[in-house]
Design a protein around this nucleic acid. Structure first.
Lengths: 207, 207
DNA sequence: ATATTAATTGAATGTTCATTCAATCTATTA
DNA sequence: TAATAGATTGAATGAACATTCAATTAATAT
């Protein structure tokens, strides 16, 4: 008896709006009042569902990291193909995953991790998950003799160092051509580490 | 006639305290009032010297980036020695430069750069200066046949990708041994890129 | 010593903030 | 339809914030 709980849907709605507002105006400029205004609800309703702003923030971080994890979906086929690993490399060095989450916010909370152990652990977990996923994929490729990588984990880590290091610098680069050239260079380094050939360039569609 | 201006010394004092407080409590939790309290001066004096908090923030960023630049001092000898370049690599992959500036703040403002073009330009300038400095050093080593690197700029960039990528991940790593092992691995990659041997391990001093 | 210039204070402003609490509304079930 | 439980509101709180302005203090030059 009593009313049906909207708790989970409402919470998710709030987090999503929080994300959008923070994306636009920055996390430090996003208040509970602002979120409430956008949603056309009362600020106290947000407190009702999250208790404190800190609680709300933690959930936003989870939300962003979940999206970050979507960079690649690990296919549980058990057998990764050449196309799979090529697709993963292409994805990692493309800008597609910028659509998944906001870089600025990702780094904002990354910076916060230096002062908050809880957040640091969250980030560590996600970064490891990605690296382990790639290592697993390389292992499967090894088994099928698609690759012959001595230490899949070390190679996976190395590829992510290339990705993270490249984007760290390139995020400050505004010259589009320079951006793409550099990225292509580091992508090739990744292919070299795997000793596989890069995916064939797809010809542009004729309009 | 009139009183001697303390403007520059006072400004620097304020920025330094701002830095210390922000380091401890985080930039977003550092108010003008807090800085003033630590300095035992009136908050309005800070406004008097910096006009707005934004102005103060920009100067703090400059301050941090200046320190970041100290990662290595470019010796204008004109002729870099093997020891110079080895020293530089050792420095880049050591934790010594964590003493120069606070990582958390560095990333906080890095994140801010995604929304503020001015800051992005500042960061770009510094990142390029470091890369160009290393490229120059490699060129000098080439001339003396210490190294034989085909493209010094590309190699310098690559080494910084290793540095940035490694620290990006390792900043979230709390296991000390894992941290050092990984760092050593990427340092070796840097030496490989230069085709020079790493510096000999220095034996620990006997106490 | 007096004029001048800058340093510094202190009080006041208005805004925004997170959070509280009690009151009201609304859907669901018995 | 009446009881119930959760959803939502609205008003209020007190703290902290950046910034203002006029007043005061202190050093330097003539």
């Amino acid at each position: 008896m009593g009313r049906k709980s909207l708790k989970e849907t409402r919470r998710l709605e709030i987090i999503k709006v929080f994300y959008q507002v923070a994306k636009k105006e920055g996390y430090e400029n996003t208040s509970i009042a602002k979120i409430a205004k956008v949603m056309d609800i009362n600020p106290s309703l947000i407190i009702h569902y999250f208790e404190t702003k800190e609680g709300l923030t933690y959930e936003l971080i989870d939300h962003i990291l979940d999206r970050y994890l979507l960079i690649y979906t690990i296919k549980n086929k058990g057998k990764a193909t050449l196309a799979d690993i090529q697709g993963t490399i292409e994805m990692l060095f493309s800008k597609k995953w910028n659509l998944l989450f906001d870089d600025g916010l990702f780094y904002t909370f990354y910076a916060l991790a230096f002062r908050e152990k809880k957040i640091k652990l969250k980030y560590k977990l996600i970064l490891d998950a990605l690296r382990n996923g790639l290592a697993l994929m390389i292992e499967q490729c090894n088994e099928q003799h698609i690759t012959n990588v001595e230490n899949p984990q070390v190679t996976a880590d190395f590829i992510f160092v290339l990705v993270d290091g490249a984007y760290f610098y390139l995020s400050m680069e505004s010259d589009k051509k320079a951006y793409l050239d550099r990225l292509a260079y580091y992508k090739q380094k990744a292919y070299d580490a795997l000793s596989i050939s890069s995916v064939k360039a797809v010809s542009a569609p004729v309009c």
